[in-house]
C-alpha cells in the first residue's frame, strides 16, 4: 500500500521501532510513579544506558550483553537517586534534575572514544512464515526481539499492577504511604525497588537508541526522549496500555515527519523536527485540562517524601 511516495507497511514498521525506546522508558517511569516517586532523571538514565550499552556491545560484540549492561547502567544511576531521595530525604525534583545533568556529562565522558563506531548488528527475530504475510509481515513481524520484549513488558507491568499482590502493595505505597506504612509494608524498600526497575527500563530504552535505532553513539543523543517519556506517563493517566498507545502515536508522528523530510516537503527540516515536542505539549495540555482530566488519576503520594517518625 502506498500513499504518495510513502510505503505504509514500512511506515508502520518504522513507527514500532521509533516508539520502542520511549515506551521502555515510559513503562519504567510509570511503575516508579505508581510507587509515589517522581524521578525526573529519566533522560539521564536513558543516556547512561545508551552509552554503557553501546560500549559493552562494541567490546563484547554482543548486542544482548550490551542491553544487559545498559539495564545495569541505568539502574546504577537510579540507585544514586534512590539513595538521595529515600535515604537522605532530598527534594525529588532537584535530585531528578541532578541525575539528568550528571548523566549527560558522565555519558559524554565515558563515550568519547566511541564516537563514530558502528555497533554490532542486532539480528531481526526470525518469525518464519509470519513475516511472509503480505503487508502485516513487513509491518509487524519483521522486527528485532526488543520490540516484542517491550510489548511483553507492558503486558507484564499491567498484570503486575492489577493482579499481583506485590503490585497492589506498590500501588498502596504510591496512593497513601502513611496508610501503607501503618499496615506494615516497607514503604522505602518498595520505592527503592521501583526506582531500580525504572532505571533499568530507561537504560534499555537508551540502548535501543544507540544499538538499533540510530545506531551509533553521540553525545546527548537522547535529545529529550526521556522527557517525552515523562510526559507520556501523564498522558497515559498512569495506565500501561495507554502508555503503549501513546508511544505508538508518538512514534507515528516522529516517523511521519522524518518521511516528510525525506520526501522533500517545502517546510524547512528544523520546523518539521520540532513537531514531536510541540505535539507532546499539545497532548499534555489536552490531557490535563477539562473533562479529559487524566491528572486526577495521579498516585496520591506522588512526589511526597516519606519519613516514618517512629
Amino acid at each position: 500500500m502506498m500513499i504518495g511516495s510513502i510505503n505504509i507497511a514500512v511506515l508502520l514498521a518504522a513507527l514500532m521501532v521509533a516508539a520502542t525506546p520511549i515506551l521502555l522508558a515510559a513503562i519504567g517511569e510509570l511503575v516508579v510513579e505508581k510507587a509515589g516517586v517522581l524521578n525526573l532523571g529519566v533522560e539521564g538514565m536513558m543516556i547512561m544506558g545508551a552509552c554503557v550499552g553501546f560500549i559493552i556491545a562494541v567490546n563484547t560484540g554482543s548486542p544482548l550483553i550490551g542491553f544487559m549492561g545498559a539495564a545495569l547502567g541505568g539502574m546504577g544511576l537510579s540507585l544514586l537517586f534512590a539513595l538521595l531521595t529515600q535515604a537522605l530525604m532530598t527534594n525529588q525534583v532537584a535530585s531528578g534534575l541532578a541525575l539528568t545533568l550528571f548523566g549527560l556529562g558522565f555519558s559524554a565522558l565515558l563515550g568519547q572514544k566511541y564516537v563514530g563506531i558502528t555497533p554490532p548488528r542486532t539480528p531481526k527475530l526470525d518469525l518464519g512464515p509470519l513475516s511472509e504475510i503480505p503487508f502485516l509481515g513487513r509491518a509487524l513481524f519483521s522486527h528485532d526481539i526488543m520490540v516484542y520484549l517491550t510489548i511483553a513488558l507492558v503486558a507484564a507491568v499491567w498484570w503486575f499492577l492489577k493482579y499481583a499482590r506485590a503490585g497492589m502493595i506498590l500501588r498502596a505505597v504510591g496512593e497513601n504511604h502513611d496508610a501503607a506504612h501503618a499496615l506494615g509494608y516497607h514503604v522505602k524498600r518498595v520505592r527503592v525497588l521501583a526506582i531500580m526497575f525504572g532505571g533499568a527500563c530507561a537504560g534499555l530504552g537508551g540502548a535501543y537508541l544507540s544499538l538499533i535505532r540510530v545506531p551509533q553513539w553521540t553525545e546527548g543523543m537522547t535529545v529529550g526522549i526521556g522527557w517525552i517519556a515523562l510526559a507520556l506517563v501523564v498522558f497515559a493517566s498512569w495506565r500501561p496500555w495507554r502508555a503503549m498507545a501513546g508511544a505508538y502515536l508518538f512514534g507515528g508522528v516522529v516517523v511521519l515527519q522524518l518521511n516528510l523530510q525525506a520526501a522533500g516537503v517545502k517546510i524547512p527540516v528544523e520546523y518539521l523536527s520540532m513537531s514531536p515536542y510541540l505535539i507532546t505539549i499539545a497532548v499534555l495540555v489536552f490531557i490535563s485540562s477539562g473533562k479529559a482530566r487524566g491528572s486526577l488519576n495521579a498516585p496520591g503520594s506522588l512526589n511526597r517524601p516519606f519519613h516514618a517518625s517512629n
Partner: peptide, 10 residues
C-alpha cells in the same frame, strides 16, 4: 574531555 566539567557540575 569537555564533558568532565559537566560531570563536575552534576
Amino acid at each position: 574531555p569537555s564533558a568532565s566539567i559537566q560531570v563536575f557540575q552534576g
